[in-house]
Design a protein around this nucleic acid. Structure first.
Lengths: 217, 217
DNA sequence: TAGATTGTTAATCGATTAACAATC
DNA sequence: TAGATTGTTAATCGATTAACAATC
């Protein structure tokens, strides 16, 4: 039973980036609770574990439906299923890794961050020295094969780990190849149409930290 | 010449996380402009390059001082200096890498994301198989040496790349060792006092992307 | 001077928090 | 029933956008 949040025209409203990010955090803690045989959890307990407020947890979840029971809390397993469905990870996603430098190699090996719902099934790079070598059972392919490989295997997502200088060109090729989304690790703003992009800018995080360290609270 | 933004009590006010993140983006594009011999830049041009609004750029910068000239724009080099000073990267920072699994190894090798202002000068791990081996000229040290090594070398920042299960314990040791800040790659919320933390949660980004892909605008 | 652009104020928009009736 | 907790509304807070006088 659910009644999704709707706009004035009654169409479902897209949740803000902040809300979606918190849903991922809720999901991870709920899975932890499930492993510890916690069958229900209250907004207060969940909030405390993540340094948030109980009101925020309830508000976030209520935006997507009625998942809890007054006096009881939220059923762990059911809420996990609901959040996975909301996030779109109630099914597996195929991923192509583009750019096999240090970061690309790291992500290919650090499958932990893929968390089971995502699978890297192709790796691309234009460095002739890397082409043809193998990683995790995958042959490094040239970018010319991006479009054909994507189509054959129905790959939907691309993780972009190329240098900033070539990122825009490669992003264009990714769009042309028919991908649906880009996780962009290149430190540059992409200008693309008709495709979703999430930026992960590793260079900015240490600067956020030094700002906080030199201006504590 | 600058007049920093102040609170009602005239004390400098801490900028929001969003503003600080944008300062990093401004800085990077300004450095690009400098390499292309652009001596001044307007808020409109800078905004367009980063998919932001001109008003937002001016507002962000005005929060820290008067850096521009009406009719002209902002002087590239001077603004770079100001932003670097604001972010705290007008001096080098020493960094310890804690946890030498796949991600830790990747970050050690992917020095690109450190961008010259940060230097990894020590690596720690508790895996007996890794101890004593070398990476980038650094010997992998046991966590028992965290405090002494930090003090001897005056290391200020820690990059935490340990598994979620041990992250809280290690974070505690990091605080005890006298670090000033943690860049936390462990997928868990840290509960620490008296130290600054920036979380980088790689597991959540692909979920943000699938949400956007299945609910486009 | 005319055109361009800043810094700042006011208006708008959105997100968080507080409070509480409803309900198990 | 009494205690706990949700879902939701109203209040607060903060961030973004729009507009424009000041100024080069």
């Amino acid at each position: 039973m659910r009644s999704p949040r709707t706009g004035p025209d009654n169409s479902p409203r897209r949740a803000s980036k902040a809300v979606v990010a918190r849903l991922s955090l809720y999901l991870r803690h709920l899975e932890w609770c499930q492993r510890h045989n916690q069958t229900t959890i209250s907004s207060g307990i969940l909030a405390k574990a993540l340094n948030l407020s109980d009101a925020q947890v309830r508000k976030d979840l209520a935006g997507f439906g009625h998942f809890g029971t007054p006096g009881i809390g939220y059923p762990t397993s059911e809420l996990i299923g609901e959040i996975r469905r909301i996030l779109g990870i109630d099914r597996p996603w195929l991923v192509a890794l583009i750019g096999f430098g240090n970061l690309g190699q790291a992500l290919a090996r650090h499958q932990g961050f893929l968390a089971g719902d995502f699978q890297i099934v192709a790796i691309f790079d234009n460095d002739p020295k890397k082409l043809g070598s193998r990683e995790q059972g995958l042959v490094i392919q040239p970018l010319e094969e991006l479009s054909s490989t994507r189509a054959i295997r129905s790959i939907e997502l691309a993780i972009l780990c190329v240098p900033a200088e070539s990122a825009q060109d490669v992003a264009h090729a990714v769009v042309e190849a028919g991908f649906h989304g880009i996780l962009n690790f290149a430190p540059t703003a992409l200008n693309v149409e008709g495709i979703q992009v999430v930026d992960v800018d590793l260079t900015t995080y240490l600067e956020q930290l030094t700002y906080k360290v030199q201006s504590p609270v």
